[in-house]
Design a protein around this nucleic acid. Structure first.
Lengths: 226, 226
DNA sequence: TGAGTGAATATTGTTGAACAATCTGTGAAT
DNA sequence: ATTCACAGATTGTTCAACAATATTCACTCA
C-alpha cells in the first residue's frame, strides 16, 4: 500500500521510460538512493538494463518533478533539500492548506475519510510505528488539499510531500516528528465538521508554523551545511 | 525574440534540449502552433536542425509543463484546454490568489509595482490594445501570487496562465475579455493598501467566479466539442 | 614540501542510423 | 457495405560513435 505518486501506472512495459522513472522514484522514496548521491548514467543504464538514452529521458521527467537536480555536464543527483527548501515547502503549505479548509465545502464522505485517516494515525502512534504515522500524516494533508477539488493542487502537494520525505531521509536520525501533530489534525477535522472553517484555517496555519520551526531546528542542529 | 526558422550553423552547445524546449514554448505561446495541432517528430527535428532524440527530450520537458500532451504511439499535440480544463484552472486560481492577498503582507515596493501594472493596463485599455491588456492582466495576477513569496506557487501560476493563453488561442475570435476587470484589479490593490485583506480576498474570489462564468459561456458558444 | 600546470581519463551532451511495436489507411473479398 | 488483411507511416527504443566539458593525477617548479 504505497501512497507514492502514481502517474500512468500499471501497464508493464507500456513505456520503458515511464517504468524507469517510477522505479527510480520508488527507490528514492524508500531511502535506497540517499539525497545528494549521484546517479551515473552508465552504471544505472547497465544495472537497469535500459539504454542510456531512455534513462536520460526518465531523468528529464524526474527533474520536472524536482526530486532530482540536474547540473550541466556534471550529472544528475538526488535532490538534497536544505534550509531554504524547507522554508519554501512551508510557504506553499501555509498558503494552500489553510485556503483549502477555509473555502472548501467538505462532503460527509470526505469528513469520514479524514476521520478514518486520523484513526489510523492514532493506531500507528499507539503501536509506535513511525513509518505508519508518516504515511497517515501525509494522507491527511493530501485529504486537506483534496477539499479544493483541484488535481493540479493535489499534484503540487504530492511534490512537496515527496520533498519532505527527502528532508527526513537527509536527517541522520529521524525523530518521531509526527507524534505531536496527530491530535491537532483531529482538531481540524472536528472544527470542519462543526462548520468552523475560519477557526480551522487559523489553527492549521499556526500548526504549520510550529512544524516548520521544529523541523528547521532539527535541520540546523543536524547538518548546518550542504 | 528571433523567429528565424533556420539554425544553420548557429547557436550550438548552449544546451540544445533546453533551447529547443524554449523555442517550442515561445511558438505555442505566440499562437504560431495552434492548440490540438500535432507536433511531428520527423518534420520538427528537420526544421529545427536537431536530432529526433533531443527533440524527444524537449517534448518530455514540455509534457511536464502540461503545455503539450503525449498520446502513446500517436504523438505529441499542443494542449487543447476544454471546459473541464478551464474549471480546473479556476479551481487553482480561486484557491491560491485569494489566499495570497488574505495572508500576504505586501511591502510598499510590491504595492507600487502593482500600481504600475494597473497604470499600464489602463493605458492599454484606453489605447484599445488587447495583447497589451492581456500582458498587464497576467502580470497583475503573477504579482498577486508573488505576495506569498513562494517560487513554486509562482511557477504553478505561470503554468496556469500559459494554459489560459491556450484557451484564448483556441477561441476563434478572442473578445476583449480583460476590459471589465482592470478596475476590479485596481480595487483589490487599493484595499490591500488600506490593509483590508479580508475584503480584498472576498472581492477577488467573486471576481474570479465571474471571470470563470464569462469564459465558460464564450467557450460553450464557440467550440462545443473538442 | 607544496602549489600550480597540463595532459590523460571519464562522464555528459548530442547525433545518426537502425529495428521493433503500434497506428492508419487503402483495397480486395465476401 | 462490412470485414479483413496488408502495406506504409510514425512512434518507442537501442546502439555506436563523436564532441564538449569535468575530473583526476602525475609532474614540474618554486
Amino acid at each position: 500500500m504505497n501512497t507514492a505518486t502514481d502517474t500512468t501506472t500499471a501497464a508493464e512495459h507500456a513505456h520503458t521510460t515511464a517504468w524507469i522513472a517510477s522505479v527510480l522514484r520508488a527507490r528514492i522514496a524508500a531511502g535506497q538512493l540517499t539525497p545528494g548521491s549521484k546517479l551515473s548514467e552508465q552504471s544505472l543504464s547497465e544495472s537497469l538494463g535500459v539504454s542510456r538514452n531512455t534513462l536520460r529521458q526518465a531523468f528529464a521527467t524526474l527533474a520536472g518533478e524536482s526530486i532530482v537536480t540536474r547540473i550541466p555536464n556534471r550529472g544528475v543527483f538526488v535532490a538534497a533539500p536544505g534550509v531554504e527548501e524547507v522554508r519554501e515547502i512551508y510557504r506553499v503549505r501555509r498558503t494552500i492548506e489553510p485556503a483549502a479548509v477555509l473555502w472548501g465545502r467538505p462532503t460527509p464522505a470526505q469528513l469520514d475519510a479524514m476521520d478514518a485517516i486520523i484513526r489510523k494515525a492514532r493506531a500507528a502512534r499507539d503501536a509506535g510505528s513511525v513509518p505508519e504515522m508518516a504515511n497517515a500524516n501525509q494522507a491527511f494533508h493530501e485529504a486537506v488539499v483534496s477539499l479544493t477539488g483541484s488535481e493540479l493542487l493535489r499534484e503540487l502537494m504530492d511534490k512537496v510531500l515527496a520533498e519532505m520525505r527527502l528532508v527526513f531521509h537527509a536527517m541522520s536520525a529521524a525523530p518521531d516528528f509526527h507524534t505531536h501533530y496527530v491530535d491537532r489534525n483531529a482538531a481540524v477535522v472536528e472544527q470542519l465538521r462543526r462548520g468552523e472553517n475560519e477557526r480551522a484555517a487559523a489553527d492549521l496555519r499556526a500548526y504549520l508554523d510550529a512544524a516548520e520551526s521544529e523541523l528547521l531546528g532539527h535541520l540546523e542542529g543536524e547538518a548546518p551545511n550542504r
